[in-house]
Amino acid sequence: MQYLEPAEVLATLRAARARGAREWAMVLVTYKHGMRASEVCNLRLEDIDLKNGNILVKRLKGSLRTTQAVTEHRGEPLLNEHRAIREWLRERRADGSDYLFISQKGGQIHRSQFFRLFKRLATEVGLPPEKRHPHTLKHSLASHLVAANVNLALVKQQLGHKSIGSTMRYVRTTDRQASIATASALMAIF
């Protein structure tokens, strides 16, 4: 399973930001909500509520439908999702489409267009070929949350998994990590 290191995510977001507000917002929303390409392309204007800071994520493949926070990020401007979406909405022309992300010709952007866009960005920042698929963003979020010791139930919810088993595939541990965690927990308990 391929995922991007945090520096690779930032490099990709930087390249997307340089390309335009739509590109930045699409890549960032995909990453922060662990979305599939089709899911981000299917987002509608009504799914975004910036006033209350929410996004309705309608998952595919039998996953959960969730309402998640649209967040700001004070530490890294490239991760400020609220700003990215606001910039895109200011730039987005009214073409009668109710989709959030529209193509340059108008209407819903197709997932194959998003795939090509992401591949160009990934190539531009020097990612290896196996990391040039937008699904690596979903894997990246999961891997980053697990590495940060986020409760697996919360990771499951953010990714829209129905089963914790789907989330567990992102867990990679060593005997040393388990020993350190056990010692630390026992020190806190006793």
Rank of each mutant, 00 (worst) to 15 (best):
M1G: 09
P6R: 02
A7S: 13
A15W: 13
A16R: 04
G20T: 01
A21T: 12
R22T: 11
R22P: 15
L28K: 04
V29R: 11
V29N: 12
K32Q: 14
M35N: 02
R36G: 09
S38P: 01
S38N: 09
E39R: 04
C41Y: 01
N42K: 10
L45A: 06
L45E: 10
D47Q: 10
I48N: 14
D49T: 11
N54G: 07
K58L: 01
S63V: 01
S63E: 15
L64A: 12
T71P: 00
R74P: 10
E81L: 14
R83N: 08
I85E: 02
R92N: 12
R92A: 14
A94M: 05
D95F: 06
G96T: 05
F101A: 07
I102D: 09
K105A: 11
K105C: 03
G107I: 12
H110A: 07
H110S: 04
R116N: 13
L117G: 00
L117Q: 01
R120W: 03
L121P: 09
T123H: 03
T123I: 02
L127R: 07
E130I: 10
E130K: 11
T136S: 14
K138A: 12
H139G: 13
S140H: 01
L141I: 02
A142Y: 08
L145F: 00
A153C: 10
L154S: 06
Q158I: 04
H161V: 07
S163M: 00
G165T: 11
G165E: 15
Y170I: 01
V171S: 06
Q177A: 03
A178L: 14
A183T: 13
A185Y: 00
L186F: 01
L186P: 00
